[in-house]
Design a protein around this nucleic acid. Structure first.
Lengths: 159, 159
DNA sequence: ACTTGAACCTCTAGTGACTATAGGTATTAC
DNA sequence: GTAATACCTATAGTCACTAGAGGTTCAAGT
């Protein structure tokens, strides 16, 4: 069946979820997921119940994809989208959100850097004998052998 | 009820899950979870069905915690623990595992660094007017405004 | 008109590494 | 004896998707 939504039939070209996904760098599953959690509005359907999108959808999804690539959480993206919908409002909130995210990224970076340094150090120290002599095992067994103070970051920060 | 396991009662001091958790920097829930997934052996129980641990348990769990802090996955920790149990084997495999992990950490670092730089740049460029003029929104809307090539890393790498 | 294959649909469950909650039992201190 | 604390199991929730089953629709070729 052809696209026959009378509201928009003549002006704009309609695309399916596959093309939308390709254009914006997502997968169709992800698009449906975003619709489900309300990050994208419910798409209109054609007569065969398939979602139809316009170029506006491509822009919105590209924005989402890009913000996610920057590491903004889905909730942050939701806020960004809401704010972007009101171009006349001041952009303070957006600045605040971006700065907060930057601070988190820098904290992650710091912890990841110290993990990298410690990993490098323990790999270099290992002379390559038996497990019983392995410096890597020694360090993992005893935090005092680390050069840094405090925990490294807590796994969730790293991996 | 007191600890009354005849096998070990006299020599070693027994501790409960709470003390084990405190000593090794985990939570009791996490200890039970590690037992459930087989990272820790099933602990012996006292007559009241409560888990009893020894100092050996503290060492093993500290090792796990520390390796997790380094960002090793639970599966990697499982392998490390297995290898650590055979001190006479060569430590090549441990080296290999550590090096592979280091490579992943460095890749993450690179992507996170580029995200940080781009975030900084877009925050500095934003003159602070309305949302419609906001450079942050502009960059998120259009990947071509980024200084870097390619995607930033794919969200999972960042967050 | 028919058929094939790709794209689409919904619904449910799985991922990793925990964390939280509910509803109960055991231990310990007073 | 009692009250606070620690412990127990079992189940569900977190985040941001991803994968799969089982069915429907579309587009193209014959």
């Amino acid at each position: 069946m052809k696209d026959q939504n009378p509201e928009l039939a003549t002006t704009e070209r309609y695309i399916g979820i596959g093309e939308l996904a390709r254009e914006s760098g997502c997968k169709p599953e992800t698009v449906r997921y975003y619709e489900q959690i309300g990050l994208l509005p419910s798409a209109p359907r054609n007569e065969g119940n398939q979602r139809r999108y316009t170029t506006a959808s491509i822009r919105r999804l590209t924005f989402i994809r890009h913000a996610r690539d920057f590491g903004f959480s889905v909730e942050a993206v939701r806020e960004l989208l809401q704010m972007a919908d009101y171009p006349d409002m001041p952009c303070e909130e957006i600045d605040r959100l971006a700065k907060r995210h930057l601070a988190e990224v820098e904290a992650r970076l710091a912890r990841l850097t110290s993990v990298r340094d410690e990993l490098k150090r323990m790999i270099n120290q290992c002379a390559g004998g038996s497990v019983g002599q392995c410096y890597i095992i020694d360090v993992l067994s005893d935090h005092r052998l680390c050069h840094q103070t405090g925990p490294h970051g807590g796994a969730d920060v790293i991996g």
